[in-house]
Simulated assay, not measured.
Amino acid sequence: YTYQSEGYAKVQVQSSGADSPRPIELRRKGDQWFLWRNLALSDIRTPASNDPWA
């Protein structure tokens, strides 16, 4: 994770639907963190059980 900008954090999230960790960016408001930028959901594979080409 990184806190390069005040009030923002970027973390890498491991997903079973991707080969490598995906970044998400969080924004802090008070004592809470909110999803600010979601780059994790792009290019996630279809489960093999739902893939007619698998």
Rank of each mutant, 00 (worst) to 15 (best):
D31G: 02
T2W: 02
A48H: 06
D31P: 07
D51K: 01
A40L: 05
D51G: 00
L35W: 01
E6Q: 14
R45W: 02
S5D: 13
I44C: 07
S42Y: 02
D19K: 09
A18N: 09
A18T: 14
S15G: 06
G7T: 13
L35R: 07
A40V: 01
W36H: 15
L26F: 10
P52C: 09
T2R: 10
W53H: 13
E6S: 14
T46S: 04
K29T: 09
P47E: 02
W33D: 01
L39W: 04
V13Y: 03
L35M: 12
K29P: 01
D31A: 12
S16V: 13
Y3C: 09
D43C: 05
L39F: 11
S42A: 02
N38M: 02
P47C: 03
T46D: 00
D31V: 10
W36F: 15
Q32T: 10
P23T: 14
W36Y: 15
A54L: 04
A40C: 04
V11I: 15
W33M: 04
K29D: 08
P23H: 09
K10H: 02
K10D: 13
L39H: 14
L39Q: 12
S5K: 15
R22K: 15
W53T: 15
Y8C: 00
E6W: 03
D43L: 06
S16Y: 03
A40N: 05
T2L: 09
A40M: 03
E25V: 15
L41H: 12
A40D: 10
V13I: 14
L41T: 13
R27M: 06
P47R: 12
A48P: 00
G7E: 09
Q32I: 03
A54M: 07
F34E: 06
P21Q: 05
L35G: 01
W53C: 03
D43F: 06
R28G: 00
K10M: 14
E6P: 04
A18W: 01
R22C: 06
V13K: 08
K10Q: 15
Q12Y: 09
A54Q: 12
P52M: 06
F34G: 00
L26T: 00
R37V: 08
L41V: 12
P52F: 07
V13S: 04
A54K: 13
D19S: 12
W33T: 09
G7C: 08
D19M: 07
Y3K: 13
D51T: 10
S49C: 08
G30Y: 10
Y3T: 06
S49Q: 12
P21I: 01
S16W: 09
D31K: 14
Q12G: 11
S49P: 00
R37W: 03
P52N: 08
D19Q: 08
W33R: 08
Y8E: 12
R37L: 10
Q32A: 04
W36N: 15
N38T: 09
P47N: 09
A9H: 00
S5L: 15
S5Y: 14
G17N: 08
D43W: 04
Q14G: 06
V13D: 04
P52Y: 01
Y1D: 13
D43E: 09
S42H: 04
W36K: 11
W33K: 05
R28Y: 07
D43I: 00
S42R: 06
A40W: 01
A48S: 11
D43Q: 10
